[in-house]
Simulated scan of single mutants.
Amino acid sequence: MSLNFHMMAKKKNINNQDIISFYMDYVLEHNNQPKSVYAFAKHYNFEESKFYEHFGSFDAVEKNVFKAFFDNTHQALEASEDYNSFNPRNKLLSFYFTFFENLTANRSYVLYALHNHKNSLKSFKTLSELKSSFTNYVQNLNIELIDVKQEQLERIQNRGLKETAWLQLLLTIKFWMDDTSSSFQKTDIFIEKSVNTSFDVLNVAPLKSLIDFGKFIFKEKIQMN
C-alpha cells in the first residue's frame, strides 16, 4: 500500500514587504525573534533562500521596518498636491503627523521593538536606516538658515540641523511611547509646539514659543513621573 503525502506548495512571490509583515506578526505573537531563518520560512511557508534574497539577518529586517514607516509616510506626502505647495515648516509638520499615524497603526510592534531602548534611542542601531532617510529628507526641505558666508561653517550648520532634527524626532517618539491620552492628543500638541519652536529659533523669532514648549514639557514630565 502506498501513502500519498500532499505537501502545501511553497509561496513563490515573496517580496521584502511580505517578509517585514511576517516578521512583525511573528514577534508580536511570540514576543521574540524567530529561532532561525529556516524556522521562520517554514512557519510562513516559503523557501529559506527567498529570505536571503532580501535580507541578511533578522536585525536587517528590524532596521527596515522603521525605514518602511518612513517610506510609507514619504510616498503618501509626495502624492499630495497640497503637500508639494507647502513651505518647509508645514512640510515637516505634515511629515510628523503622517509618520506618527503610521507608528500608531503599528503601535504594538513599535513598543515591542523600542521598549527596552526607550532611554537610549540615540544609539539604538535598529533606527539607523530611519535616521539616514529622515536626515536626508530634512536636508532636502531647503530650510533657510542664517547665511554664514563660509563653506566650512555652512557644513557644520547643516550637520547640526540634521542632528537636531533627528534628536527632535527621537524625543517625539519617546513622548508618544509614554502618551496615554486619547487618540494621542498630547503627542499632536507636542509635535506642533516642538516643530514650530525649532523654526522660530531658526528665524531668531521671539522666545515665547520656546517658553511655552518648556512649560508644556515640564508639566507633562511631572504628570508622567
Rank of each mutant, 00 (worst) to 15 (best):
Y112K: 10
K122C: 06
T126F: 03
N119I: 07
A113W: 06
A105F: 02
F100R: 14
F100I: 10
Y96M: 14
Y137E: 11
F100K: 09
S94V: 00
E129T: 11
K91V: 01
A113E: 08
S120W: 01
S133G: 09
N102I: 12
L111V: 14
S128C: 14
S85F: 07
N140L: 13
T135K: 04
E144K: 15
L127T: 06
F86E: 06
V110Y: 00
F124V: 10
F99S: 00
N102T: 07
L121I: 08
N136Q: 03
N119V: 00
S133Y: 13
L103D: 15
L121E: 04
N140V: 02
D82I: 13
K91C: 05
L130Q: 13
H115G: 14
V110D: 07
K131A: 09
T104F: 12
T104N: 15
F97G: 01
S133C: 08
Y137F: 13
H115S: 07
R107F: 04
F134W: 04
H117K: 09
K131W: 03
K125T: 08
S128Y: 10
N142K: 03
R107H: 03
K131Q: 15
F97S: 10
V138F: 01
S123C: 01
F99T: 09
Y96Q: 15
E144M: 13
T135L: 02
L127Q: 11
L103P: 06
S133T: 11
Y109A: 00
S128M: 14
L92E: 11
T135I: 12
L111P: 03
N87I: 04
F99K: 14
T135D: 12
Y109D: 07
T135S: 07
N84Q: 14
N136H: 05
Y137Q: 15
V110C: 10
F97T: 12
L114Y: 02
S120T: 09
K131C: 01
L93F: 03
D82C: 12
K125C: 09
L121G: 07
K125I: 06
R89Y: 06
L93S: 00
F95M: 07
K91L: 00
F134T: 07
S123E: 10
I143C: 12
S85D: 00
S85T: 05
K131H: 08
N119K: 06
H115N: 13
E81W: 10
Q139V: 02
I143Y: 08
R89V: 05
S133L: 11
L127N: 07
A105K: 15
F99M: 06
L103C: 09
S108A: 13
